[in-house]
Each structure stands twice: as C-alpha cells, then as structure tokens.
Amino acid sequence: MNKDKLILRTRFIERASHWVMVLCFLAVALSGLSWFFPSLNGLNAVFGTPQLARILHPFFGVVVFLLLAFLFVRFVKYNLPEREDLAWFRNVRQVLAGEHEPALQIGKYNAGQKILFWGIMGLISVLLVSGVVIWRPYFAPWFSIPSIRIGLLVHAIAGICLILLIIGHAYLAFWVKGSIRGMVTGYVSRSWAKTHHDRWYRQISNKQSGSGKQQ
C-alpha cells in the first residue's frame, strides 16, 4: 500500500484504542443483552459462564469507558458543532441516499458522526454512573434500594440506546466503503477523503503542501 497516495486519518494509538474498545464493547453489549432479553441469555457465553459474565461485564464496561474517555480527549476538538454542520442536516436525505453531490463542507467528521460522538460519550457516562450504583458487590450496598432500581432502569435504557447507536455506527462504516479500512489501517484514500470530508481534505492538503506534514 502506497502511503503516499493515502491520507492518515486515524493514528495508531487511536485505532488501537478503538478496536480494543470494540472488542470490549462487544462482550459487554452481548452480555448486557443476555440479561435484558431472556431469550438471548446464551450470549453471556462471550465471557465463558453466566457467573463470570456477571463479574466481568462491569470491568469491561469500565474499560470501554476509559478508552472512550481517551478518544474523547483525542477527538473532541473535531466534534465540536460548527456552522457548516447545518449544510449536512439540510442535505441529510442526499447523504443517506449515497449521493456525493453537492459538497457539504464537511470537516473531519460530519454532523451525523458528531451526533454519534456526543451520543456515545453521553451514554457511556450514564452507563458508568448507573452501573456503579448497581455494581455488586462493590458499590451497590452503598446505595438505597430505590436508587438501585432507578439505576437498573437507566442502565438498561442507556445500554439499549448505546447499542442501537453503535449498530448504526457500524452499519454506516460498513456502508461507506473505505471507512473500515480507514479505521483498521489508519489511512483513507484521497478521493475518499475528498468525497466524504471535503473541508477536512482541503485542510490536510493545505497543511501538507505548507509543512509537508501529514494530518
């Protein structure tokens, strides 16, 4: 792969974090689902046994949170809302239809991705807080039973929402060809960048031509 023809979109540390998180999330989400939908109980086999799943789920969940927190630090600056995001919203139908015209002045992340970003960050925080409240045997005994009940409900709702978001995220990555490769290798093609993130592409191009440095 000729890296000269490609643009580094995501650094190794970020990619590594992302994919570790994906694995952890998968385990946490599947075990979570195993307890939410009785019929999916077998999914907790991801952790070996139901008992082990119950013990590991919260620890893996915390790992997910920590990795997301790291990614939050790394990515937050690209995910701040901008005036240009409005164009994406106005043209969301074309975006979903896969039409690449007109160019929407999209930065490193489009508005949809930003929503995803903030959604994930928000939900994982809710999951962390509610998860601590219901976490046995370590923390739950410190909370009253009514607060644990609310914790359980909130944790379930937030978990469902997060899984739905992630399904969407994963599907879109799968749909937009080149995205997964981008997250796996770190590199995207210039045409991909130009097509999907035109403003970012321009910024990169300008920087590269200015300093010869990537990013």
């Binding site: 119950r54 219901i134 045997p137 644990i148």
Partner: peptide
C-alpha cells in the same frame, strides 16, 4: 450470577 437484581 450474583447481580443482586432480586434485591432491587
């Protein structure tokens, strides 16, 4: 599995 949901 020791989740304690029964307590809640």
């Amino acid at each position: 599995i020791g989740c304690g949901y029964c307590i809640a």
